[in-house]
Design a protein around this nucleic acid. Structure first.
Lengths: 376, 376
DNA sequence: GCAGGATAATTACACTGTGTAAATATGTGG
DNA sequence: CCACATATTTACACAGTGTAATTATCCTGC
C-alpha cells in the first residue's frame, strides 16, 4: 500500500508469488480496469519491465470529522483531491442537526459529481474515537446512521468507517510523496485536536489496526478536567486546545496557521518550560503505553514535532520514568514528523483508496489479493 | 486448542473445511500418530461419529521460572504431569550460577526419561518479562543461552520460550477441565508474584499474543519503589509481595498455602481497606490499559479473585476514573478466576503442548493446520 | 538491417488441496 | 433381514500455484 505503484519483480517478491502467478493476476486486474501498467526499460539489455499503478480513473470519497468540522473530499486512488468542502460541526450538535449537516454535504457532492459524470466507487469516513464498543463520549452521535443517509444520496457507494488516528497513521505512512520512511512495527502518536495513537504493523492490514486512546490515559490523579469527563487525562495536558492558553493562540488561529503556527510565535521561557512539562507527561504516558504494547519505534506527529529538539528531551525524561528497562535511543527510536495540521479530509480519502483496494470479493489468502496489496 | 478433543463435525465447522477435507486430514494425522480417534454413538440411528484427541503417547517438557524458583515438569499433551522438580532460583543469581542450576535440572530429567525410555518431543519455557526487546530488568539473564544447555542434555528437543503471563493465560483458558468458559477477545490479567496481562484473541494463535506489562504502568508519580527500578508502578502496589505486609504473611507462606491463603486469615478492617485501595489502583491501571486496547471482557486471576465480592467494587471505582466512557457491567465484563497459586510448571507444560501442535512443517494457511488447531 | 545476447512476460504442464456429490459403511428399530 | 438415518470415504471437477519451456522485447555489435 504505497500509492506510488510497483514493479512486477517487487510485487512478486513482496507477495511471495512467482512472476508467472503475478502475470496471471495482473491480467485479471487489467481486465477489471483496476490497475494500469507501463513498460519501462530498466536495464541496458533485455525486455522492458512493467510498472504497475492503480487506475487513475477511479473516484473515491473521503469524509473526515475533526477540528470541529465535517469535511468532504472527492479524489482519486493516489489521493489527489478534486473537490473539498468543510463545514463547522460542533460536538454539541444534536443527532438530528448533525445528520442534516451530513445530508447537506452529500447532496452537494451528488450535484458536483452529477455535473461531471463521475461515479464514486468507494467512500470512507474517519471519526475520532470510532470503534470503541463502549461508545464515544466525545462525539456521542450514532455514526452508523450516516450509511443510510449516504445510501440515499449516493446509492451503491460502499462506506467504511474508521478511527481518525488510524486514517492519519495510514496517510502519513503510505501516501506519496509525503509518506515517512520508517519500516517495521511502530507506534504512531498523533497530538492534534485530540491525542491518540495506533500501532502500525506492516504485516497486518490497515483495517486490522486499532486505535490507542492514549489521550485518555490518566497520568495525574485528580488532575485537569478532560472533555471525556475524567480528570488528569493526557489529552487535558497535551492536545492543541490544552496548549493554546500557554502559547497565547486560540485553537482556531492554530488551525488557520497550520504547521507554521509555532514559527510565528516568540514563545517566552515560562511558556517553553510549561511546554516541556507537558512533553514530560507525554513521555510518561508513552512509556506506560509501550509497556503494554512494546514496539522499537515511535513516530510522533503533532506540536512536539514543531518544538526545538532540545525541548523534546523532556519526552525522553518522561519515558525514563515509566518504560520498563528505561529509555535509550538504542532501544527506542523516536521520530518526529510534520503533523500537516488542517489537511482534512486527505487522510480519509487515503483510507477510502485503501478500502477500495481491500474491497470486493477477493479472498484474503489469495495470491491476487496479496499482489494487489503490494501495488496499493 | 481445548486439550479435551473434538468431534469431526466441530472440527469441520470451526476450521471452515468440509467433512471430506477433515477426513483426509485426519487420515494423515493418524498415520503420523499425532491424533487418536474413538468412534461413539451419538444419535439414535446412524453411524457412530469420531471423537478426536491428541495422542497420549507424546511426552513434552515444561520449564517455568516463577515464584523465585525454577520448575521442570514432564507430561503429556493433555497436561498430565508425570515428573516435577522445583529448584529455588533467586533473581540475584549470576548468569553462570543460573545456567548451572538449569543444567542440573536438565541432567535430572535426562536421567528420569532415560530410565523409562521416554522420548521428549517438545519443550517450552516461560519467563516473566520475556519477549521485550528492551531487555528484562527483573531477570537480567541471557535466557536464550539455555537452548544450548538443553541441546546438550536433551539433543533434538525443540525449545520455545514465552512470557509467563502468556503461558498462564493459555493454561487457564484452554486446559481441561479447569479452563474458563469465556469466549471472544478479552484481557487476561494475572496478579501473582508479578503483575501482567495478555490480550487473548481467539482468532490469533497463542504465540502471536504479546504480554501486557501492566504491572509496570506508573500509576502514582514518585510512588512506591518497584523492583524494575521505577517508582509508582502498579506491581509495587498489587503483587503478592506488595500485599504480604498488609495481610501479615510472608510470600513464602502464601506460596505454600496456595489459593487458600486468604481463607486462613482473619483480615482486619484496616487491612481490608488497604487492600481495597490497592484494588482501586488496579482498576485505574486497567482502565488506562483498556483505553489503549479495548476489549469487552477482562479475566482477573490473582489475589483479588480470593477477596470478598463487595471489596472488588473498588476495581470498578478505579475503572470509572480512567476508562473512556466510564465503566458499567454492560460495557465491560469482569470475571474472576482462581489463580492456582504454586502450580508451576503446569502452564509451561501446556504451552509446550501447544507448541508441539503448532510445530512442524504445517503451512499456517493449510486446512490440515486449521483442523489440528481445532483438535488441540 | 540483422543476429546474438540479455531480460521480461506468457503459457503448457504437473501438482496440491479444496468442495461437491455419489458411494460405502455403520448403526438402530421394526 | 430390511428400511432408515447418520457418518465416512472417495471419485471427480475446479482453482491456483510453481516449474520450466516458449515467446516477446529490448540493446549492442557487426
Amino acid at each position: 500500500m504505497r500509492s506510488k505503484g510497483a514493479f512486477r519483480t517487487g510485487i512478486a517478491r513482496d507477495s511471495n508469488l512467482t512472476e508467472a502467478s503475478v502475470s496471471r493476476i495482473l491480467n485479471e486486474l487489467r481486465k477489471e480496469n483496476i490497475v494500469e501498467e507501463k513498460r519501462q526499460q530498466t536495464s541496458n539489455a533485455g525486455a522492458p519491465t512493467g510498472f504497475v499503478t492503480l487506475s487513475k480513473d477511479i473516484a473515491i470519497l473521503g469524509i473526515e470529522l475533526s477540528n470541529s468540522r465535517l469535511s468532504f473530499g472527492v479524489g482519486d486512488l493516489k489521493g489527489t483531491l478534486d473537490y473539498v468542502e468543510r463545514m463547522p460541526a460542533s460536538p454539541q450538535l444534536s443527532q438530528q442537526d448533525f445528520e442534516h449537516l451530513f445530508a447537506e454535504g452529500t447532496a452537494n457532492i451528488r450535484e458536483w459529481i452529477g455535473a461531471r459524470g463521475i461515479a464514486l466507487r468507494q467512500a470512507a469516513m474517519s471519526v475520532p474515537g470510532y470503534g470503541r464498543e463502549g461508545g464515544n463520549p466525545i462525539y456521542p452521535w450514532d455514526i452508523r446512521r450516516l450509511a443510510l443517509l449516504l445510501g440515499e444520496a449516493l446509492p451503491g457507494v460502499p462506506l467504511t468507517f474508521t478511527n481518525s488516528v488510524i486514517a492519519q497513521a495510514a496517510f502519513h505512512r503510505y501516501s506519496y510523496p509525503a509518506g515517512y520512511d520508517i519500516s517495521g512495527d511502530h507506534l504512531f502518536l498523533f497530538a492534534g485536536h485530540g491525542v491518540a495513537g495506533v500501532i502500525v504493523n506492516d504485516a497486518a492490514p490497515v483495517d486490522a489496526f486499532s486505535a490507542f486512546e492514549i489521550g485518555h490515559m490518566v497520568i495525574e490523579r485528580d488532575g485537569l478536567p478532560c472533555r471525556c469527563g475524567h480528570k488528569g487525562c493526557l489529552e487535558a495536558y497535551t492536545s492543541l486546545r490544552a496548549i493554546s492558553p500557554i502559547i497565547g493562540l486560540s485553537d482556531a488561529d492554530i488551525l488557520t496557521r497550520g504547521d507554521h503556527f509555532m514559527e510565528a510565535l516568540s514563545v517566552d521561557p515560562t511558556a517553553r518550560k510549561a511546554l516541556r512539562e507537558r512533553q514530560f507527561l507525554l513521555g510518561l504516558a508513552l512509556g506506560n503505553a509501550l509497556n503494554l504494547h512494546s514496539v522499537p519505534k515511535v513516530v510522533i506527529s503533532g506540536w512536539p514535532s514543531l518544538m526545538p529538539e532540545a525541548d523534546r528531551v523532556a519526552i525522553a525524561d518522561g519515558l525514563n520514568q515509566s518504560l520498563l528497562g528505561g529509555y535509550s535511543p538504542e532501544r527506542l527510536e523516536l521520530a518526529f514528523i510534520e503533523p500537516l495540521i488542517g489537511n482534512d479530509p486527505k487522510a480519509a480519502l487515503h483510507y477510502a483508496a485503501y478500502c477500495f483496494v481491500r474491497g470486493g470479493a477477493l479472498d484474503e489468502k489469495s495470491g491476487q489479493h496479496a499482489a494487489l496489496e503490494e501495488i496499493a
